[in-house]
């Protein structure tokens, strides 16, 4: 008996107790439910979002009474009618959509060679440098970066000062649509590179060598080997960039000079400037709808790219 106690140390006994407790709380027959249990936090979070959307949906059907600044008791579609008929909202929506598409195209064009070089370079020093340069902007918030551009591109900024040295008078580089697009591209570039890099890593370098040995030039190899195989990365990066650009607030607000609003800025105005939560909620839901349709169309045309899983990823 004594011998047995020595051979079976105390710590093991404690572990046995824990195991028995665990078996009582979570019997082995429950094992199949474990993945679902692990999904629970995500489901709760998504559930909260859905609850919020229901609340927003309710608000969107109520109008503001400016004699009491309360929302109406009865439901109406007046906010949707306003949002879909007023020229201002059409202008802002058009600018946001067009901006999101332009930013996505430019960002992918810039991100692709960056990601390719980062993945393919034999120099570990260069790879580290590219990685550091990629992650550094993540440590600097979007607002700070936008203010940085104010300093660089302002009338008395570095660029205009440099131009002044060669006799070019100061020119307005900020507070216009191109400035907003420029700021967005700079903000989105790291996201796109991060989404593209895994897809490019998955392309075996031997394939490119084989194409080359069979006489294909760099352009043909790129067009017929790299680009098709990188499609999942391009689609995934494109989806992330287009949705983030479409819903961006800070860059249009700071670099647009007040006259280049995107949909998010119009939503802010309704909630916080005119106190019209109903119209703000309506615009929010329409933005969610437009974004979802856009993503759905991309899914149908090109698949889900790196965002898809298993057999669906082509």
């Amino acid at each position: 008996m004594r011998h047995s106690r020595v051979a079976y140390p105390l710590t093991w006994r404690v572990m046995d107790v824990f195991e028995r407790l665990a078996a009582a709380v979570w019997p082995s027959s429950f094992q199949r439910g474990l993945p679902y249990l692990m999904l629970l936090p995500a489901v709760v979070l998504v559930g909260l979002l859905v609850l919020g959307l229901i609340q927003i949906g309710d608000s969107s059907l109520r109008t503001l009474d400016t004699s009491t600044f309360m929302m109406s008791e009865n439901y109406t579609l007046a906010n949707y009618q306003r949002a879909l008929s007023e020229k201002f909202f059409a202008t802002v929506a058009g600018r946001s959509l067009m901006g999101a598409v332009i930013v996505t195209v430019i960002t992918l064009i810039f991100a692709f060679p960056y990601a390719y070089l980062m993945v393919r370079t034999p120099s570990s020093a260069l790879r580290k440098f590219l990685l550091v340069a990629l992650f550094l902007p993540f440590f600097i918030g979007q607002v700070v970066r936008a203010y940085g551009w104010l300093i660089i591109l302002g009338n008395q900024g570095m660029v205009n000062e440099a131009l002044g040295l060669v006799g070019v008078p100061p020119m307005r580089l900020l507070y216009n649509y191109p400035a907003v697009l420029f700021g967005l591209v700079q903000y989105m570039l790291p996201f796109a590179v991060l989404m593209l890099a895994p897809a490019l890593t998955a392309i075996p370098a031997e394939l490119e060598s084989a194409a080359s040995s069979l006489g294909a030039g760099w352009v043909r190899t790129f067009r017929h080997i790299v680009l098709p195989l990188a499609r999942p990365g391009l689609v995934g990066a494109g989806l992330v960039v287009v949705t983030l650009s479409l819903t961006d607030f800070a860059i249009p607000a700071i670099l647009g000079g007040g006259s280049q609003d995107f949909i998010a800025n119009a939503i802010y105005d309704q909630f916080f400037r005119t106190s019209d939560q109903g119209l703000g909620a309506t615009l929010s839901l329409l933005l969610v709808a437009v974004g979802s349709i856009l993503v759905g169309v991309v899914f149908m045309l090109f698949g889900a790219g790196t965002l898809a899983m298993g057999d669906e990823r082509k």
Partner: peptide, 18 residues
Amino acid sequence: QVENESQWFAKFKEIMQG
């Protein structure tokens, strides 16, 4: 002002964002 401000803001925005 309170009763009309929202409309004035909207109209101003419509002109300036056009």
